[in-house]
C-alpha cells in the first residue's frame, strides 16, 4: 500500500512548527501505524534527514505512551484502541493521512509529535493514590466487594493516562482522566476512605494546571482508547460537590 503523510514537524518547544508531506510506498497492509512511521524514519535517516519524533513504548495498548491525532481522531479513526493498535489496512490505499500532536495548552509540544503530558502526572501526584497501609494481600474474602463495584472500578482503572480526553475536548478539559482515577479508587474500600481528600486535591490541581471546564459534550469518551464512560465524571462531580458541602 502507498500513502501520503502530512506530518506536523516542529524543531523544539519554542520553534514554530508546520506540516510536511512524505510518501511511503510498498507498505504491507499488516504494518502497524507506528511501524509505518518507523519505516518512514528509517528512510529519513538514510537520506540524512531528521527523523519524526513520536511517543511510544509498549506498543500493545497498555502503557498510554503513544498519542497522535490521526485524520482528526485521537488514536486514529478506529474506536477503543490506542495508536499502537491500529494497522495500515484500516486506511484506504493511496490516501493522505494527516498526523498531528495533541493540541491543548496544558500539553505543550516538545518536538514534532511529542507533547509534554507531565500535567497528568502532577494531577496524580496531588491525590491519585491511597496513602493508607494496605500491607500484604489479605484473604480474598476478608473484605467482601460487590462484583458490580469491582467491575466499575476496573473499568475506570483501564485508563492509561494517554491524554486523548483533554486532547479531544474542545475545552481542553482533563475531567475524564481525573474522573477515571477518582472513580477507580472510590469504588474500592481502601480508596473509599480518602475519597473526599482525593477529589478535592485532584480537581484543584487540574484547575491550577490550566485545563478547561467540562461542558459534557462526551467527545472525550467517544475518542477514549479504553472507552471510559462519562458516568465516572458524574461520580467525580458527586464526590467533589458533597465534599464541598461538608467544608
Amino acid at each position: 500500500m502507498n500513502f501520503t503523510l502530512k506530518i506536523w514537524r516542529q524543531k523544539d518547544a519554542k520553534s514554530k512548527g508546520g506540516f510536511q508531506q512524505y510518501k511511503v510506498t510498498d507498505i504491507s497492509s499488516d504494518t502497524s501505524f507506528l511501524e509505518m512511521l518507523d519505516i518512514l524514519n528509517n528512510s529519513l535517516v538514510h537520506e540524512g534527514k531528521e527523523p519524526v519524533a513520536f511517543d511510544h513504548d509498549c506498543r500493545e495498548g497498555i502503557c498510554g505512551m503513544c498519542s497522535l491525532h490521526i485524520n482528526g481522531h485521537a488514536h486514529g479513526p478506529e474506536q477503543g484502541v490506542t495508536t499502537c493498535q491500529i494497522y495500515m489496512r484500516q486506511f484506504p490505499d493511496n490516501s493522505t493521512i494527516t498526523v498531528e500532536p495533541w493540541r491543548s495548552t496544558a500539553f505543550p509540544v516538545i518536538k514534532d509529535l511529542v507533547v509534554n503530558r507531565g500535567a497528568y502526572d502532577q494531577i496524580l501526584q496531588a491525590g491519585g493514590y491511597v496513602s493508607v497501609r494496605t500491607n500484604s494481600v489479605p484473604d480474598g474474602n476478608a473484605i467482601p466487594i460487590p462484583k458490580a463495584d469491582a467491575d466499575e472500578s476496573m473499568d475506570a482503572a483501564a485508563c492509561v493516562g494517554c491524554g486523548a480526553c483533554a486532547a479531544t475536548c474542545k475545552n481542553g478539559s482533563a475531567m475524564l482522566f481525573v474522573a477515571a482515577r477518582v472513580s477507580s479508587l472510590a469504588k474500592l474500600p481502601q480508596g473509599r476512605v480518602e475519597g473526599i481528600r482525593r477529589a478535592k486535591a485532584m480537581v484543584a490541581k487540574m484547575d491550577e494546571l490550566g485545563f478547561g471546564n467540562c461542558t459534557n459534550t462526551g467527545a472525550c469518551a467517544a475518542e477514549c482508547p479504553k472507552k471510559i464512560s462519562i458516568a465516572h465524571i458524574a461520580r467525580l462531580n458527586r464526590e467533589f460537590l458533597s465534599a464541598k458541602l461538608k467544608d
Binding site: 474506536q79 494527516t98 493540541r103 495548552t105 474542545k170 490550566g210 478547561g212 461542558t215 467527545a219
Partner: peptide, 24 residues
C-alpha cells in the same frame, strides 16, 4: 475553555461519534 484549548488548532477536525452539535 478557549484558553485551555490553545491557539494552535487541529488541521483536521471531525464530529466524534454520539456527540451532539448543540453541546459544542
Amino acid at each position: 475553555n478557549r484558553r485551555a484549548r490553545g491557539n494552535v488548532r487541529y488541521e483536521i477536525t471531525v464530529k466524534e461519534k454520539g456527540v451532539d452539535w448543540a453541546s459544542k
